[in-house]
């Protein structure tokens, strides 16, 4: 049996490389170029760890986004939920005298509930996810500003800060969180019944209904999960900055969507993989980092990101058409 198992695992890897050939090559080319143009700075352990830490928040949001987009929906509210939960976590400690633990849990629960609310409305009405989460994006952002009076809430409490700044050996906590969520999401989507229902809902919801799949529950779970991931990320980010920032996570939903699409997830639903999204996340991360190292300002980074997205999706389509 062990032979059989390694064979299977190998097949999985081979398939992964085949499926993501285009984006992997793109990522590789970027790394090669950077190794020449940055005099090796790019490859320093410090910088690589840095890149991973920088991408970790986008990665977590993009995992949730991938689920939402595969069901044929989208979640525009992640950036705002992130800000609200982050702000609340700091605020609860500083203003309400919560313990760090209580504050963090409460903040994450609230963010998760907003995700659940998104899911509930999407599942029980015919209002499109785009609209529902657009509304939630406004509501959560507004709530974050109201709660904080529009000011950052300083929370210089080591116990709190460590959530975002701590290290396990050489690896920052946020990278660990990312890795854990990556594994959980990969398993959820590819190995479980829930994952299969996610694909079915996005691929042909009528078929899903006619097969007895609980479509409403599947959608609710997906948006709840996305809300949870956003809230968690928000707490981590604010802990790292030692301050609840109501302005945090502006347009993060766009980066999450970009990473998802770069990974080959179809905006019309039914197709996509977490592992591919992770490559999309890395491409955006390396691009940002590289352009930073090269001294190009963030406005140029935006233009570069736009071009890369167009290119990647176009190449992906060519590849599919040839089949």
């Amino acid at each position: 049996m062990p032979l059989d198992n390694t064979l299977k695992a190998q097949n999985g890897f081979v398939r992964y490389f085949k499926e993501n050939m285009g984006t992997l090559i793109g990522l590789l080319i970027m790394c090669v170029i950077l190794s020449f143009t940055t005099n090796g700075v790019f490859y320093s352990q410090r910088n690589l760890v840095n890149v991973l830490r920088q991408v970790s928040s986008n990665a977590c949001l993009a995992f949730g986004m991938t689920f939402a987009i595969i069901t044929g929906g989208i979640d525009l509210s992640v950036g705002s939920i992130l800000a609200l939960s982050g702000t609340l976590s700091a605020g609860f400690i500083v203003n309400s005298g919560f313990s760090v633990q209580q504050a963090v849990i409460a903040a994450i629960v609230i963010g998760t509930c907003l995700g659940l609310f998104n899911g509930f409305v999407i599942a029980k009405t015919t209002i499109p996810p785009f609209i529902v989460t657009l509304a939630m994006m406004q509501i959560a952002r507004g709530a974050a500003y109201i709660y904080s009076n529009g000011q950052p809430i300083r929370a210089m409490i080591p116990e709190y800060q460590v959530i975002g700044t701590g290290y396990l050996g050489p690896i920052p906590y946020p990278v660990i969180y990312m890795a854990v969520f990556l594994i959980i999401c990969v398993v959820l989507l590819s190995k479980t019944r829930f994952g299969r229902h996610v694909y079915a809902v996005g691929g042909n919801d009528k078929a899903a209904i006619f097969s007895g799949v609980n479509v409403a529950r599947t959608k609710m779970l997906v948006y709840t999960m996305s809300g949870f991931l956003a809230a968690f990320t928000g707490v981590v980010l604010c802990a790292r900055m030692a301050s609840g920032q109501p302005t945090a996570g502006q347009s993060f939903e766009m980066d999450a969507i970009a990473a998802t699409v770069l990974g080959g997830t179809s905006m019309s639903g039914g197709v996509g993989k977490i592992g591919s999204t992770m490559i999309g996340v890395l491409i955006i991360g390396v691009l940002n980092n590289g352009l930073n190292l090269l001294g190009l300002n963030s406005f140029w980074q935006q233009i570069a990101k736009g071009i890369v997205i167009l290119l990647a999706v176009y190449v992906d389509m060519l590849k599919k058409r040839r089949k």
Partner: peptide, 10 residues
């Protein structure tokens, strides 16, 4: 069912 009820990408 009369209409095909299969999920194309599964």
């Amino acid at each position: 069912h009369q209409e095909l009820c299969l999920v194309p990408y599964l």
